[in-house]
Amino acid sequence: MIFEAVAPLLLAIGLIFNGMGMVGLLRFPDVYTRLHACTKTTTFGTIFTSLAVIVYAVDWFIASGEGQYIMLGLHTVIAVFALAVTNATGAHAIARAAHRSGVHPARAVVDHLKGAKQ
């Protein structure tokens, strides 16, 4: 069926973006730029891997008509929303804590926050 062709494609896109986040974590110079790499790309990559799960659930629901596949799909949708909100909030908390404990952005051309806090 068509779903069997779509799900691996979605999984591949998701894994590429998640892998990119990991490479960024190793390559970037300081905590802020690393947060850029690992919040954005992993959220986006996980959306695609979750889409693959949803496609799989829809496929099996059409084939078997069992309610458990609706449950699987809906739980994945809720997990994606929870992940998107908590990932952004967590990144914000880490960045704020880092700046408060005196970590200044490496190679920065401007830092308004440093001036505002003095």
């Binding site: 490479v23 390559r27 920065a108």
Partner: peptide, 11 residues
Amino acid sequence: RVITGRIRPGI
């Protein structure tokens, strides 16, 4: 930016 490493960060 991950691949090329071209960054110019700031707050």
